[in-house]
Every structure is written in structure tokens, then in C-alpha cells.
């Protein structure tokens, strides 16, 4: 039941969930899994991408997403996930239309390349348009009720996230007054409010962990609320403290009726050793992450890869109290 103490979604209280992470850590899958989880039980969520990668369409195996909110999946208990790929140019036209009733003139502007020009010459403006659209969806109401219970943004990677979310600083350099400034201040206020939560996805590998630490420091300095650290693709804790000998392996293989020739025994032994080396490194990285003092959620490695069916496993793990 929404709002009840048992509701696992209580652990994800924000309305706007921004999911970032180093490239290759699986942030799109995590964002999709979160959107599915928060939609469970008859709710509606919006999953947004802003980088033109069509990662959501790839994941859900659909046609490329247009600049339009479309139902992309149904969630457990009758919920619905819609998806949107925000395009900066179209967002600008929409914005101009909304505030200046441009209509055909707006389309003419696009034809002569004005929109491309405007978003190119003032790159910060592009980000204001993208985050502005996200804000609009997050706060949109119909008949006095919010249209989306939650909005999940598949955001730019950790290396760019600070600049992307710090919209006012980027536009302040160019626009000292006027609607662009007002717009970016509105976005900035939402992004710094408790309605927003930025989650960082990482793997237990050195560079993603380093970038996670850097991103957390950067976002903290910017005053943007940080949510959870999501450790993706973790392996079960096998051979935690065991010392494995070849003799022991040979006995075990014999007991299980498997071949016991030297190649098999030595091969398994080497694999066990490599696994333990990797594990020790992962443990120390896990400690580095714990030092950040943020709630952590671990998601299992999916050996079969991530598709619509296996996303449910990630969703379940995200909503399981840890």
C-alpha cells in the first residue's frame, strides 16, 4: 500500500530520481529498473533520457523514442512506465511556443538553423532546456493531481553530471536577466530541494569507484541532494575466507564424479585464486564507498545480460531493504 510502513518505495522518497554513473556501469538499466519499481501497485512513472543515445529503446527493444511521452512497460500490480527522450531543439521550440506563441515562425527558425545555433553557441542553454523539460514533467499536474508519481532521469555520466545539474552557473555567465535566467533558477531550485535525489551507479572497479567519489564530492559542494550509491553487478561472496588446495579440489571432484586430471584441478585452482584476488580488491573498494557515508544498495550481476525479463531482478533488489 502506498504510504504504509511496509512500502519498499519509502526508501526512495524523492519525486525526481537522477541516475548517474561512469559509462559502462549500467546506469540506464538501473534507471529503468527503478522506474519499474516505483510504478508498481498502480502508479505511473516517467523514465527520461537526455543524451540522444536511445538507450531506453535499446533496453526495451522498441523503436527509437520520439520527443513524446509513451508507455513503454507495465509494472507489477497495474502500474505504468512511460518513457521520453528529450531533444534540446524540440524542447526550445516547445518553450518558445509556450511563452511566445511562435507557431510557424518557430519552425522557420529551425529551418534556418537558428535553434541549432542557439543551443550550440550557448551550451549551458542546452542543459537548461533539458533539465527544464524534466522539471516540467516532475511538477506537472492534471485535475489537481500529479501526473507522475516519480520521474527517473537517465542522466549524463559522472564526468559531466556536475556541470549538467549546475544549470544556473552555466547560464548566469550568458544571461543576466530575462526568461532564460528565470527558467534556470526554477530548475536549480527543484534540483536543490528534497524533491530531488541523485543516485550514483558504480561497479566494484577502481575507476568507477574513483569517479563516484569525485562526483559525490562535486555534488555535495554544489548543494545538490545525493541519494544512494548503487553498486551494480556484484558477485555472490564465494570462497570468502577459504584457502583452497589442489589436493582438496581433487578429492571434491572425485566425490562429485567429475574428471580429476591435472589440467582440470590446476585450472579450477587458478580460477579460484584469481577470484580471490578480485574479491580482495572488491572488498577494499566497497570500504572506500562505505566511507562516503551514503546508503548503499547492491545489485546482482546478471550472467545472462540485462533485458526486459532480467530487469525485474534488478527492480526487486532495488526495493529490498538492505
Amino acid at each position: 500500500m502506498p504510504g504504509s510502513e511496509q512500502d519498499p518505495r519509502a526508501a526512495w522518497p524523492a519525486r525526481l530520481h537522477v541516475v548517474t554513473g561512469k559509462g559502462g556501469t549500467g546506469k540506464t538499466s538501473v534507471a529503468a529498473a527503478l522506474a519499474l519499481g516505483l510504478a508498481a501497485g498502480g502508479r505511473r512513472t516517467l523514465l527520461v533520457e537526455v543524451e540522444g543515445r536511445q538507450g531506453i529503446a535499446e533496453l526495451f527493444e522498441t523503436e527509437p523514442l520520439p520527443y513524446e511521452e509513451r508507455r513503454i512497460a507495465t509494472a507489477a500490480g497495474g502500474g505504468e512506465v512511460r518513457a521520453l527522450a528529450v531533444d534540446a531543439e524540440l524542447a526550445l521550440l516547445e518553450y518558445l511556443d509556450l511563452f511566445y506563441k511562435l507557431g510557424a515562425a518557430g519552425r522557420a527558425l529551425r529551418k534556418v538553423g537558428a535553434i541549432d545555433f542557439a543551443t550550440t553557441i550557448a551550451p549551458g542553454m542546452r542543459d537548461v532546456l533539458l533539465t527544464g523539460k524534466v522539471k516540467e514533467a516532475t511538477t506537472r499536474t492534471a485535475e489537481g493531481r500529479r501526473v507522475y508519481h516519480a520521474v527517473v532521469l537517465d542522466a549524463p555520466p559522472t564526468g559531466r553530471i556536475g556541470r549538467f545539474l549546475n544549470v544556473t552557473a552555466e547560464t548566469a555567465r550568458l544571461a543576466k536577466m530575462g526568461p532564460i535566467k528565470t527558467q534556470s533558477e526554477g530548475v536549480a531550485a527543484l534540483l536543490r530541494s528534497p524533491m530531488t535525489s541523485v543516485h550514483v551507479v558504480t561497479l566494484l572497479e577502481e575507476m568507477p569507484v574513483q569517479e563516484t567519489v569525485d562526483a559525490i564530492n562535486e555534488l555535495t559542494a554544489l548543494g545538490i541532494p545525493i541519494g544512494k550509491l548503487i553498486v551494480n553487478a556484484t558477485r555472490p561472496p564465494l570462497l570468502a575466507d577459504a584457502r583452497v588446495t589442489q589436493a582438496e579440489l581433487r578429492r571434491g571432484l572425485a566425490a562429485a564424479g567429475l574428471p580429476t586430471e591435472r589440467g582440470v584441478v590446476a585450472g579450477l585452482h587458478a580460477e579460484a585464486k584469481a577470484h580471490q584476488t578480485r574479491r580482495a580488491l572488491e572488498e577494499s573498494l566497497r570500504l572506500d564507498l562505505a566511507e562516503l557515508g551514503r546508503p548503499m544498495v547492491e545489485l546482482p550481476l546478471l550472467p545472462e545480460g540485462v533485458d526486459r525479463a532480467s530487469l525485474d531482478k534488478l527492480t526487486a533488489a532495488l526495493l529490498t531493504p538492505q
Binding site: R235, A242, V244, L249, L268, E271, A272
Partner: peptide, 14 residues
Amino acid sequence: HEATAEALRVHAAL
């Protein structure tokens, strides 16, 4: 044979 069983699971994952 706990250690062998785990070593086999490590191999299976690999």
C-alpha cells in the same frame, strides 16, 4: 566439500 563446491560455482559463473 564446501571449498570445492564454491570453486565449482566460481567456475560456473566464469
